[in-house]
Design a protein around this nucleic acid. Structure first.
Lengths: 160, 160
DNA sequence: CATTTATTGCTTGATCCCTAACAGTCAGTT
DNA sequence: AACTGACTGTTAGGGATCAAGCAATAAATG
């Protein structure tokens, strides 16, 4: 199963004369597989990846977070955050706190139950991550991170 | 805008002592941005990324493709393919051909309009890809591809 | 102070994706 | 021939995402 090329994985008939295109497909496909793997774990706790990401962001915040700030951090729109928070609030894992000074905003925070949930799931999540990336050295990881940083920089410059 | 670390991009308060976790986030975030950038292009032609991916796969097929084969190639479930094909068929871009030998399956193919659409959009798509990845050398791309291959291999071994 | 501009969170409608379950069909077995 | 098992495409239900647009509020401007 290891050491398969993307071409073989996809059963592609198209020749990959276009290395840039192959790079894009490779990134997207890897991300999809990583997300799906995570989803399997979260489902055992009745969580979706988006919901877990919110919980994790709230655990590690050190300033008050509005929904807008949360959406920037998680790189989704405010509309998306609204619906995810509705779900989490319904489960009693997070709460929206009114802010007297500014009546437009809420501060979002974990409830006690939300904290417990994160404490339970996060270690398993990290364990899984480590399992998935077991084949990569720290050095290789840093190289990937650096390269992808440059990809994102290119998107910001031209695509946005 | 360039040369920003992921930490800075996300405004993260959490220290990244966990390089593996940072790698995963980096991959997923880059894929998201790439997809979004593509979506903007496709929308001009009333296409979604999923729809374009189907059209592209059909253009470069060299065997008959069933819906199931298509779903494997695009790494989504058969249910997803059904709905995307319904949309594309509604627009007259693809067609489902009954196969007498096996009444369970359809062969999916581009219509003339579908071929025209691909011919129009694909060059723009490739142009955009090249713009986005302009900062990366071929060598660097190959390094990314190779590293991500190993990530996916790890997923296949343990996570699946 | 009044007007304009910006921000915030929410709603709506669309698309995508998934899981689960289903009926139809095929293939191998008994 | 009948049964069992596997495969195919579909449907139903739920969640995430986006774009667009809204009302309330805040900030900036005149």
């Amino acid at each position: 199963m290891a050491n398969r090329s993307l071409k073989a994985e996809l059963g592609l008939d198209m020749p990959f004369e276009d290395v840039l295109h192959e790079t894009v497909l490779s990134i997207i496909r890897t991300a999809t597989l990583l997300s799906q793997s995570g989803a399997g774990l979260f489902r055992q706790f009745d969580l979706t990846p988006a919901q877990f990401n919110v919980l994790l962001a709230l655990k590690y915040k050190n300033r008050d977070l509005t929904q807008s700030a949360l959406s920037k951090r998680l790189v989704v729109t405010r509309a998306s955050i609204t619906s995810v928070l509705d779900k989490l609030e319904g489960k009693g894992l997070v709460c929206r706190e009114r802010v007297p000074k500014n009546r437009r905003i809420y501060y979002v925070a974990l409830t006690a139950a939300g904290r417990d949930m994160v404490e339970e799931v996060e270690p398993l999540y990290r364990e899984r991550i480590h399992g998935l990336l077991a084949g990569l050295s720290q050095k290789e990881c840093r190289a990937i991170i650096r390269s992808l940083e440059r990809v994102r920089a290119g998107i910001g410059d031209s695509g946005e």
